[in-house]
């Protein structure tokens, strides 16, 4: 798994959104709405995650006939591991801040 010691808050947000249902394929527009990230921020993030082997992509056929196929995304095993580590870090940081 590539080292990602310094990941941006936006990347954390995307990882957190994707790890909720790790097996589900997600679309760009849905992720944008869920995370509140604009597509101009979201797509470069998705591209970097895919380049690092943290995200897998697939063209999914639409359920409704006549609609275009869409590019879908979900985390790889490495991506899920990273997202879980980051989520734990965020939780422990939040707990520490709450106790101080």
């Amino acid at each position: 798994m590539p080292r990602r010691n310094h990941i941006s808050p936006q990347t954390r947000t995307v990882l957190a959104a994707l790890v909720v249902q790790p097996q589900a394929w997600r679309y760009g527009y849905d992720l944008s709405k869920e995370t509140g990230l604009k597509s101009g921020t979201l797509y470069p993030l998705l591209i970097r995650l895919a380049d690092d082997g943290l995200l897998e992509t697939e063209w999914r056929q639409p359920l409704q006939p006549g609609r275009p196929p869409r590019h879908a995304y979900r985390l790889t095993a490495a991506g899920i591991a990273l997202a879980q580590v980051r989520a734990q870090e965020a939780t422990s940081t939040g707990t520490q801040e709450a106790t101080t």
Binding site: Y29, S39, G40, Y43, P62, P68
Partner: peptide, 21 residues
């Protein structure tokens, strides 16, 4: 993805972001 968005304002905003990306 832009073609799949039904709301025109959303599609426009999304496409603008794609251009920036």
């Amino acid at each position: 993805e832009v073609r799949a968005i039904e709301s025109a304002p959303d599609a426009l905003a999304f496409a603008g972001g794609c251009l920036w990306a």
